[in-house]
Amino acid sequence: MDVEIGLRVDGEPHRLVVDTRTTLLDAMRERLGITSPKKGCDHGQCGACTVLLDGRRATTCLALAVAHDGAEIVTAAGLADGERLHPIQQALLDHDGLQCGYCTPGQVCSAVGMLAEAEAGWPSHVTADLSGAVELTDEEIAERMSGNLCRCGAYANIVAAIREAVR
């Protein structure tokens, strides 16, 4: 069944016809040619497709496009202002927090979403006091970024980059 929906991606409005089976990820990659979000597993098991969906970090491979008519999406491409990178992106370059680059846009979006969560005082699995203040230690950053797998093994540099960007 085909359905027409609207999406706003990186500030650009799009009208498109999707199969009800089409995921938000495939709608962007295959219908709109927006390939900044990557497909690494297609089952919510790697985080490569992470974007900011209506303001929050979210995987897009398990979201049906038809259920997100009208959604506002920001990808890693949209976080940069032309040549000017988002501080997280610049920090990843400075700390070489990437190698093959395939998980990287998802790491970027996840980091940006994660920082907003920490800013809002959200605890994590490794927060000792669930009701206390949040301090973004390396352990906290690593835990909060664990939904983004990186096979090249850039984790240590990703954590360093985020630590730096927060400072």
Binding site: G44, R57, A58, T59, S110, M114, L130, R144, G147
Partner: peptide, 22 residues
Amino acid sequence: RQRYPMVSAALLSGASGQLRNV
């Protein structure tokens, strides 16, 4: 968080931040 910390802890140990958000 305050009255049922086991609920928060259980949720925070599950999946990933981007999955828990949806």
